[in-house]
């Protein structure tokens, strides 16, 4: 993984600090003042760089190969987890993982796309692009959760549903519609956490929830900035411009009322301190699960439906104007 261009000055500085520290240890000379001063500079630089990330820089952070995956969050957030496989119809899609986990002693159902941590694993997991059987597995596990009154927690990090011949033949569009519909009426609390990429219908199929949380360096939109740029200008290399236009950052989405809260990441991104990110996600889940558990399930479903019912911007036309 090449470092991002905008991080290079910081990474170089951090490298120098670590070299100086090693030198001190070896030579028994005292450079602690110099080190402290460099660390102050690094900390300022870090704030400067990461406080002003452009939308596209956030998109790239969301795709960082070292970024925690769904299984990482499952390991960090829950006390126990039993993975469950298969859609009972066709197969088991490794691009979506799911099962029952214990959250501070309480059983919950967890579902999310799984990207690979390296090329080999990415091929096995189809880069986290689900086939219809992945969505059918998700649907099955969510219905199972409903039956036993378990809250559902989904983690979302995928560019989209897999575009392929077999996926189309096995009903990709239909199953996404079914997931959206089923989650909308599911009689149990649902929390969705957008941890990385929230790409289009494939993400929404896991994203109809009572609370929608989003990590600071995640994106969520109807189309990827690359595809948008290639439609607008026939040039996917202008993705950075498209990312601005699409308003896909958590800040924008919070303002629009699409999401409910933003989970802050360590400076420099979730991958820089996975454990910290895991604790953050856990704290947010704890807070929102507590609220949702207090609400009657009828009301949860009503409010969930009302929330989406409101979304959209248009003008009523008075008949006189026609």
């Amino acid at each position: 993984m090449q470092p991002f261009e905008w991080e290079k000055p910081l990474l170089e500085l951090e490298e120098r600090i670590s070299e100086l520290k090693q030198f001190c240890a070896r030579s028994k000379l005292d450079f602690s003042e110099e080190i402290a001063s460099l660390e102050r500079r690094a900390s300022t630089l870090r704030r400067e760089i990461y406080a002003s990330l452009t939308p596209y820089q956030r998109v790239l952070m969301a795709r960082h190969p070292k970024r925690p995956t769904t299984l990482d969050y499952i390991r960090m957030v829950f006390d126990d987890f039993l993975e469950m496989h298969g859609d009972r119809t066709f197969g088991d899609d490794a691009a979506i993982v799911g099962g029952i986990a214990l959250f501070e002693g309480q059983p919950v159902t967890v579902v999310g796309p799984q990207k690979g941590r390296d090329t080999r694993e990415n091929i096995a997991r189809n880069f986290g692009l689900p086939h219809p059987e992945g969505y059918r597995k998700a649907l099955r596990l969510m219905r199972q959760a409903e039956k036993f009154g378990r809250p559902v927690i989904t983690f979302i990090d995928l560019v989209g549903a897999h575009p392929g011949v077999e996926a189309e033949e096995r009903g990709q569009g239909l199953v996404i519609a079914e997931c959206i519909e089923a989650m909308s009426f599911l009689r149990t609390p649902i929390i969705a956490v957008i941890t990385g990429e929230g790409g289009s219908g494939g993400a929404l199929a896991l994203g109809v929830a009572d609370r929608i949380l989003m990590l600071e360096n995640a994106w969520y939109s109807v189309i990827s900035p690359e595809m948008c740029a290639s439609i607008l200008w026939r040039d996917s290399s202008r993705a950075a411009e498209a990312a601005e236009l699409l308003r896909l950052t958590p800040t924008d989405l919070l303002k629009y009322g699409i999401i409910d809260d933003v989970i802050t990441e360590p400076l420099g991104g979730a991958h820089r301190d996975q454990a910290f990110t895991g604790r953050q996600v856990k704290a947010f889940l704890r807070r929102y699960l507590a609220v949702l558990k207090k609400t009657k399930v009828e009301r949860l479903v009503e409010e969930r439906l009302a929330r989406f019912r409101r979304i959209g911007q248009f003008h009523e036309v008075k008949l006189a104007e026609i």
Binding site: I180, G201, S221, I223, R247
Partner: peptide, 11 residues
């Protein structure tokens, strides 16, 4: 309409 368009699927 970006995310607003996506949300019409749910709606």
């Amino acid at each position: 309409e970006g995310i607003f368009s996506l949300m019409q699927m749910a709606k």
